[in-house]
Simulated scan of single mutants.
Amino acid sequence: MKDLICNEFQAAVSQCLVRHKSIIDVLTKLQETTCRINRAIAKSVTVCGCLEVNAKKQQIPSNISLHDLSTYMDTHLKGNLCPNCREVLEQELGNHLFYLAALCNLLNLNLYDVFVEENEKLTTLGIYNLS
């Protein structure tokens, strides 16, 4: 079922991608969507205020194991997305997924297979998958 949804999405992208079908167009649109995601998050901090970034140097004990490292790492993020910022960010992430699927289509890759392969690496290597 999960592969069906992913495959349907990838097929729908193939049907809808008309204007920006060149690999150059897709690459630059994918990069643009990354920028728009970054901008949406920044605006949730600087314009809306629903999120706050409180960044500082990570304090990591010298004798900590790799397995326990995540308990000492901070996201530097406080608050939660308001409904409006959530909607904007979901839209931008959707656009990003669209162009990611378009890139897969142009390169004859199956997006679901990419997900499965990455998931297998994560579940096999766990925290040692530091790529």
Results as ranks from 00 to 15, higher is better:
Ile60Trp: 04
Leu77Cys: 10
Leu100Lys: 07
Tyr99Phe: 15
Ser22Ile: 11
Glu87Pro: 04
Ile127Ser: 10
Leu66Cys: 12
Pro83Val: 03
Gly79Ile: 02
Thr33Val: 06
Asn105Leu: 00
Glu52Gln: 10
Ile60Met: 04
Leu66Val: 10
Glu118Asn: 14
Pro83Ser: 09
Ser65Asn: 08
Gly79Pro: 03
Ile41Asp: 00
Leu93Glu: 11
Ser131Val: 08
His96Met: 06
Cys16Met: 11
Asn80Met: 13
Ser70Leu: 10
Lys56Pro: 00
Lys56Ile: 04
Ile23Glu: 14
Arg36Asn: 14
Leu66Tyr: 07
Leu17Ile: 09
Ile24Cys: 11
His76Cys: 06
Ile23Lys: 13
Ser44Asp: 02
Glu87Asp: 13
Asn119Ile: 12
Asp74Tyr: 08
Leu4Arg: 08
Ser62Leu: 12
Thr33Cys: 07
Leu30Thr: 05
Ile41Trp: 01
Val88Met: 04
Pro61Met: 02
Ile23Thr: 13
Ala11Ile: 07
Val13Thr: 04
Val45Phe: 03
Asn110Met: 01
Lys21Thr: 11
Ala42Gly: 04
Leu97Val: 08
Thr123Tyr: 15
Ser44Ile: 01
Lys57Trp: 08
Asn129Leu: 06
Lys21Ser: 14
Lys121Asp: 07
Val45His: 02
Gln31Glu: 11
Leu122Lys: 15
Leu109Arg: 05
Asn105Ser: 03
Ser44Thr: 05
Ser70Gln: 09
Leu107Thr: 04
Gln10Tyr: 06
Asn108Lys: 04
Cys35Ile: 14
Ile37His: 01
Glu87Asn: 13
Cys16Ser: 11
Met73Ile: 15
Asn129Arg: 13
Lys29His: 12
Gln15Gly: 07
Gly94Asp: 08
Asn63Ser: 14
Lys56Ser: 07
Phe98Met: 01
Cys16Asp: 08
His20Val: 05
Glu87Ala: 15
Val88Trp: 01
Leu30Arg: 04
Lys21Leu: 11
Ile60His: 05
Thr71His: 10
Asn80Lys: 14
Asn80Tyr: 14
Cys82Pro: 01
Glu90Asn: 11
Gly79Val: 03
Leu51Phe: 06
His67Tyr: 12
Leu69Ala: 04
Val116Asp: 06
Leu81Cys: 05
Leu111Phe: 03
Ile64Cys: 06
Ala102Arg: 00
Ser14Thr: 08
Glu32Tyr: 12
